[in-house]
Every structure is written in C-alpha cells, then in structure tokens.
Design a protein around this nucleic acid. Sequence first.
RNA 1: GGAGACUUAGCUCAGCUGGGAGAGCGCCACCCUUACAAGGUGGAUGUCACAGGUUCGAGCCCUGUAGUCUCCACCA
Length: 855
Amino acid sequence: MLKTHYNHVEVEKGKYETWLKKGYFTAGDNSKMRFSMVIPPPNVTGMLHLGHAWNTTVQDIIARYKRMKGYDVLWVPGMDHAGIATQAKVEAKLREQNISRYDLGREKFLVQAWKWKEEYAKTIHSQWSVMGLSLDYSKERFTLDEGLSKAVKHVFVTLYNKGLIYRGERIINWDPVFKTALSNIEVVHQDDKGYFYYFKYPFVENPNEYLTVATTRPETMFGDVCLVVNPNDPRYSKYIGQKVINPANKEEIEIIGDSYVDIEFGTGVMKCTPAHDPNDFKIGEKYHLKRINIFNDDATMNENCPKEYVNLDRFVCRDKLVATLKEEGYLIKQEEIIHQVGHSERSKTVVEPMVKKQWFVKMGPLAKQALENQASEDKVEFIPERFSKIFENWMNDCEDWCISRQLWWGHRIPAYYSKKDGSILVSETEPENIDDYIQDEDVLDTWFSSALWPFSTLGWPEDTELFKRYYPLDIMVTAYDIIFFWVSRMIFQGLEFTKVAPFKKCLIHGLIRDEQGRKMSKSLGNGIDPFDVINKYGVDALRYFLTTSTSPGLDTRYSEEKVKASESYLNKIWNSARYVLMNIEDEKNLDNIDLSKLSLVDKFILSRLNKTIQNVTFNMEKYDFANASTHLYNFVYDDFTSWYLELSKVKMTSETKKVLLKVLKDIILMIYPYTPFIAEEIYLSLPNHLESICLESYPEFNPSEVFEEEEMKVNSLIKIIKDIRSFKVENNLQPNASIKLYFTAKDCSPEEIVPYLKRFSFASEIVLNKHMLSSKIYELGEIYIEEDIDKQEQIKKIEKELETLEFEISRGEKMLSNENFLLKAKKEKVDLEKEKLAKNLEKKKQYLNKLESLK
RNA sequence: GGAGACUUAGCUCAGCUGGGAGAGCGCCACCCUUACAAGGUGGAUGUCACAGGUUCGAGCCCUGUAGUCUCCACCA
C-alpha cells in the first residue's frame, strides 16, 4: 500500500539502476520497427544546466512513448570534446598552478585534458541517471574516440580530394586571447560604446588641402594601403590617382576609386586596410593591394608599426596614436557612437580580423545540395515549421567555413608537410616516412566532428549493422540557438556523405530563462541548478514542468511556483491511486470489464477516458507534449478525481472496481513518459503488473467504450450538484446542511439518480414526481430545493431563468434566421444550433407554464 | 538594413484546421466530507495591444500602426 503522501526521494530511489540492469533501454529487437535518436552531446566542460534538463527530458518522453508504442528505440548517448571551451577550462585550471600549456607541451597538456574529460564525463553520467534518461549506454560515443576520429579524418580527406576543403590565406576572425581563428558564427556582435575619429589625410602635392577620413579603429591606420572613394562621387572622383599622406606613419598612399564605397556614409572617403578588415580585404584582392599585418597574435602591435608603438596593446596604441595625431593637428573631431563590435563567443574579447593561412570548407556546393534537399520531398521536417526558413536563410548566404583552430584539444588536421619540398600530403593515415614530414599543428573546429554525429555514432564510415538499421535518425531534438552551428552542418554533411538527410524531423525548442525572463548567466548569478530543484521537488516534478509549461519553439521562464504545482499534480495522482488501491484490495477478479453491468457513472468515465486517450495520443504523435499533458491533466482533475472518484463512492460494485483500476492504470501509463519514477512506483503497486512499467504498452482508444448518452446524463447530474452547492453558498448554508429536494425524472430512472443526489446534496428527504412550479429544468429532469420563500420570490427566480434562456434563444434565432449562415456554415454547426434552439424553446415553454400557474 | 517571434484575468502563460474566453499561482467566502489540508467547495476579475479588411461569424486569417524581444548582416 502506498504512503499517505508522495515522497519523491523514496519514489526515485534505486529505480534507474534497476532499469539499467534489466536492459530496458538497450536497443536491438529486430522484430520491431525501429525508432532512433542521438542525444545532442553535452560539452565535457562542466555540469548540466536546466537547458540540458529540458532538452533531454523531451527526448526521454519521445523514447519512452515510442517504446510503449512498440518500437525498438535506440537513443544514443555521448559527449562532445568541445575544443576551445574545454581547452580554456583546462588552461584556466593549470594557470592556478602557474603553468601554461606551453610549459607542458602538447602531449602532456592532452593528458591533462583527458583527465578533465574523464572527471566531467562521470559527473554528466550521474546527472543523466538522476534525470532518468532512457539512454542505451552500450552505444555511447565521444567525439574524440577512435571511431569518430576515423570518421573525421575520412570526411576531411574526402572533402579535400573533392576540392571542398582548401587551405588559404584569407581574412579570418582572430581571438587574441585564445590565439586561434574562429568561424563567423563564433563571433557575437554586441553594441559597444566607441568613437568615430575624423582625420586629415593631406595631399602630397598640396599639403594644405586634405581629405577627411572617419574611422573607429585608428590603430589600423598603420596597415592602410590606400584611400577609396566612389568614382560616382562628384566631390572626390577628381582625386582618384592622386596621393595623400597617411598621418599615422606619414607614408604616401594612393587614392583609388571603387563603387563599394557608400557616398552617404561617413565622409565618403574610406581608408583601406586589407589585412584587418573583411571588406578592405576584398578590395585588396580586386586591386592586388599589399596586406600589411600590424598585429602580433596577442593583438599587440608588431614591427610593421612605428617603433614607439611596437608591442603596445591595441587599445593602448589607439589612445596613444589619437593623442599624437591630435597634437599634430590631424584630428578634426571625435564623435561618441554605439556600434556593433565582434567579440569572441568564448573569451569575450574583441575579435581582430586578420589575414592568416587557415583551412576552409567551401560552402557553395554543400549549401546548394542542402537547399535542394530542403525543397524536395526528402526535406528535414522542422517542428515548428518556421525554423526551416531560418535554416534556409542561413544556408543561402553562408560564407566558407574556417575549420582550423590553433588549439591542441581536438582532431588534429590530417595534413602533412614535406620537410624537403614543403608539399602537402592529406591522408587518413600517417605517411610511412613520417620523419620526413611535419603534421599540421592545428586541430579542427569542434563543430566539424559534431556535424557527423548522427552517423559517426552509428559506426560510419564502416557499413555497420547499427548504421544500416538505425540511419537516418527519426528525430533530432535541439534548441534553436544551435541551428546554425550544428543542425545545418549535420544536414549538409549528412547529405554529402550518406546521400540522405541525417534525420527526418528536427524538433526545436526554446531557451530557458530566469523568473524575470533574463538569460541565465554566470555574471548575473541567476542560474538555477536543476539538481537543487530536483532535491527539493523531485525529478518528476521538474521534468513535468519543463515539458508542459512550454510552447513549441518558444522560450520559457523557470518558475519555482510551477514546479511546485507540478508536484501537487503528481501528489493528486498519487492519492487517487491510494483510493483505488484501497477499494480494490479484496477484489480478486479485476480483468474483463462487463460493459452490460456498468453503472451510468462507470460508463461516463470510460467514455471520457477513451476520448482522453484519443486526444493525448494525437498530440503525442505531433510531439506536442504540452497539449497532450493538458488533455490528461483536465481528465485527471475534472473527470476522474473531482467527479468519478466521488461518484463511485455511492455504489462500489465489483464492475466499478474494475473500471477504477483500468482508468487509474491508463492515467499512469499516459503520465509515465513525463514522470517515469512516480509512474513506476504506482504501477508496481497495481495488481497484475508486469516486471516494470518500462515494458508496458500505450493505452489504445476503444470506440466501443464511448457512451455519449451516459456522458450527457452525468454532465447533467454534475450540473445539478453544482447548482445545489451554489444554492447553499448563496443562502449561507453549510455545505453539509440538510435540505429537502423534489425531483421529477425525465429520460432516466429515478432510482439511478437519487442515491447520487442524496449523497451530494446532503438531502434529508427527496420527494419524487411531485411537480413544483418553481423547479429548475435539467436534462435529467426537474429539481426543486425547498426553501422558505413566497410566491413573488419564486416568480422572480423563474423570471431570472427565463432571462438567461431568452438570451440564448435570441442568439440561436439570430444565427438561424441568417440565410448566409444556413448556406455557408458547416452542416454540423447548423444542426447543433438547431438542436440547441429546439431544446431551449421547449425549456422556455415549460418555464412559461410554471409562471402562468404561479400567477 | 533584413528576418522572425511576442502583445489574452493582478502575475506567468494555454487557446488545435475561424463557431459562445481558459489553466496555474494569487485574491474573497466557506469546509479538517473516511484518496489527498501539498486538499475540497463556491466566487470575483478580461473593450483578447490599436486601426482597418476578409467572413454568416475573428483572440485565431489578411493589411497597417505601436510596443517588447530574438536572430542574421561588413557598413569604414
């Protein structure tokens, strides 16, 4: 027997270990249809947060639901080495001991990094188990494990041989803290306060005249190679070909013309720094301009700058240069502005565009393929659909992907440079005469290996059984913030290498915010540790909250109040289970409900149950877990606990007991994917259970158990009871005050109804078939509550009823007298309204008769 | 500069293909009724941002306006 109160600590204890031991989550039953997913691999940088909890719970609901629906479910766990993020953490830890990665050297540093990985993998595993995730650990992978490394090399080499990976000197985003290149999307643009500086560039021929150039980054003037004006700009076109003095270093530079320059913007004269600005770089390419790199790798100034600036930090240099130019009279003015500045996603430092030799993936052909696929029938179905557009927009104008990183923690680029002639060898295996070669020092962007995750985890590029059976995946579940980083890259790599999209559906959810709607972040200190929540309210309550108080694709706010409400709901189910168990204790035969022996209310609840199963299943199939849970919730509260449990107390037949058990069991089965721990606990206390709820099937809709008439009648009974209750409140009577009732049945046998009336109205006496003039009319018949009021009061009451009735009748008549409504509305709607109107008119007639007699 | 989302009860949010406005929490009154006081019963509260349009009928569809937010974009 269950305890009086739901205690999450006791309920959760030991269950997950048992499930794992029994192998319930191990895929491989080939007799069933397959259903496959892989977990978005969390970074091995630290603890899981609420976002992970949300994301994984959604997947767990899917996995458990699909198992119940008879699928062989594979859900692959795994983690991501998270190159730059993890390396930063390991370096920070070493720094505490005053050790830099260079002190250790590559190999020893990697030993430290692997240690870090082992430690955090352990934490993540234990957190997954607390969350109750039904992962198949026998298939677990890590992005740096041997098989995945093999896949990465294979992809790199194949793309290289196809000409889709190239090495080139191009302008890239440089992170001067981590001293590595970044891809475009690892740069986040923020509004920063800065200055627009206006400088004089005097003409060589005529030093009294000058052009004014505005810039936000004066220090890059040391890298200027020319000025650019628009040839169509009447103010300046005449100067094209002339020379001016660069005030920063007093060197002569030419004025060239190019229509790129916006006549309206700034002064209309642009300085050109091909080595440190993406647009200037393009112009530089067009006109074969010099690229003068002025920065060291840590963004201090290098020897291409005047002596007094060398080795100064870029911002110190900026201030010093501005001060000098001001002194020399070159600074015309400076304006404070707010502008977008690129920062490194990881180090937060201001990114410096630099020309560097890096490896790139040529995006054009890959993007084209992805877009074509998305326009075809084999497209990835995004849920909600609008995210497809976001994916396509990005695919449409993405630049080549810089994939080399100047880090140590990651997949080392399989390119080898000959010591003899410097030629490049790109190969999956080391060259035999390795001593004659030097391997490229760089590693690949983390997302390069993540992009292969849906198939590399299944053993690809080997043609494994796992890959053959489970690929492509049925669904990928992720938040919208990594559509560009991850989803899009999985799609184009999947298409390129496996010829199909890596997953059929992509379920996108939002981000979780704090109670005020702000992002959770370390600097704000507003992060919520999911495991604190779990300790307090239980993992089921957290899971329920995360997956039900959210809307598809939208952000949600964390709300302790709602977690608490979830726990109350679970307690409600818990206690309803106690009631059922208490009542069926001594009943031996609980199977095979005999429909012919059911009472009115038994049929009512069975009917409601079946409609609920239908609605819940419909929404589960759409992956709309919030909506599915709402249907179940309303059924549990309104139909089951508020009414059926109470009504069942009137006449507890052995058939009723069977119904109680069936309804409870189906509720437990439907809530199970959301809240597996409490569901298992209750399930195991039911008679005739299997070894675990994990082995159960999902409830099926049964049309032969839908009883419209009984539903209608019980609803009418409920209405009567509610009216009696309000009558008592209105008349300041205690809820259990005894009253005298008059009941004249219609379309039902009074014997069936009276016991319920008696119990719920606390009636001391129920008089049957005695027509009372001021009784109220229901589907089940007429009800009159005896009270001490005079004729006038009774008339008033009836007139009030008539008034509301009149309102409804006129609404119906208006509708039905509208020809267009009759012509254009759906037939069912018209019939429904007709029926309603007829009923109301009949009711009105009866009330009028009463009124007549009273008067 | 583009793209998208959001605006519904005091607060947080639901409202499925257009057919009589909902939940949780909070608030008021009453009730320890033998599953549950982490509860029950009854109740109050909404020009569904604004303005047009389509429609027999609009919270829902279309257009515009305002506000909030997010993403993308090289504007020196």
